[in-house]
């Protein structure tokens, strides 16, 4: 006796196939919605900002007169900030990841630390701003300097870098570690010569994505008291400075129409900077990507 009635199966065929098509369009629609909003946003920014987006804009200091104003101090400030955040967050983040993955015993304490790191990644950035204000700006008396902002931003992106680096280190096949240990290598030699080279694409991709977040953050810097208007450049990491998002924030809060166009041009600069960073991340990933 047959348990399946094939005429019923055939009857059921049509709704199954139409559902298949329906969901395909549903997902396409979801994708298109995001793309459409992004497209409108980009169009508005570029059409507004383009008239101001020229060499003069890059070379000029901020000014009360919109036709003279530029992003020079903010752009250089953002680069200064990156110069502090990149080494501090990468060294601390990768070091923590190596410790947790390779050295730490799997017990209640490491699990607790692990959960907290993942939670920290979800803490609102303004909370990190308050922490930076208390510790770096006030307690360590660094003021609204490059160093204070850089350390605050490093703390902000640290959880992301740790988690990404851990993932990358964990995905290195254990057979490769065994091969190294089997030849008499120490743990450090194995990490340096086998684990890190294999994990570097993942670590750098995560690191650069974290840096792109740091470059666009505004809220913690507002709390740290970074100036909205600054007409000189920092000379050392202890100097006061400002960054692109702060400059854009300043311009959008001005009443004059021209400043809003300036803000759009500033956003274009920020987007280009982000695009550059992401391109580097993709290039690194493609260059080092290996199969196992």
């Amino acid at each position: 006796m047959k348990l399946i009635d094939h005429s019923k199966v055939l009857n059921h065929m049509k709704p199954r196939l139409s559902f298949n098509v329906f969901f395909r369009f549903l997902f396409l629609l979801a994708t298109l919605f995001g793309l459409l909003v992004l497209g409108i946003l980009l169009y508005r920014i570029i059409s507004e900002g383009f008239p101001y987006f020229d060499l003069h804009f890059f070379q000029s200091l901020p000014s009360r007169h919109p036709e003279q104003a530029g992003v020079y101090t903010a752009l250089i400030g953002s680069i200064w900030l990156m110069a502090v955040v990149a080494p501090v967050s990468l060294i601390l983040g990768v070091g923590t990841a190596i410790f947790l993955e390779e050295y730490a015993k799997k017990n209640a304490i490491t699990t607790f630390i692990q959960i907290n790191i993942s939670n920290l990644a979800g803490v609102p950035s303004i909370v990190f701003g308050l922490l930076g204000l208390t510790v770096f700006v006030r307690a360590l008396a660094l003021g609204s300097s490059v160093l204070a902002a850089g350390l605050t931003m490093s703390l902000l992106v640290l959880p992301v870098i740790i988690v990404a680096s851990q993932e990358a280190i964990r995905s290195v096949p254990k057979e490769l570690r065994q091969a190294s240990y089997g030849l008499g290598a120490t743990k450090w030699q194995t990490i340096l010569r086998v684990v890190l080279p294999a994990a570097i694409p993942g670590i750098l991709t995560g690191g650069i994505l974290a840096l792109s977040r740091a470059i666009g953050e505004t809220a913690p810097l507002v709390v740290l008291g970074l100036p909205l208007f600054l007409a000189f450049l920092p000379r050392t990491v202890f100097d006061i400075f400002t960054v692109l998002p702060m400059q854009i924030f300043n311009w959008t809060s001005r009443p004059q129409e021209e400043f809003r166009a300036l803000a759009a041009a500033g956003i274009m600069v920020l987007l280009i900077l982000l695009l550059l960073l992401n391109t580097i991340a993709v290039l690194i990933r493609n260059k080092y990507q290996r199969r196992y």
């Binding site: 065994q178 091969a179 190294s180 089997g182 086998v194 294999a198």
Partner: peptide, 12 residues
């Protein structure tokens, strides 16, 4: 004491 494993495991 050297060791050869079940699955070939050359380094990349």
């Amino acid at each position: 004491v050297g060791m050869v494993f079940q699955k070939p495991n050359p380094f990349p």
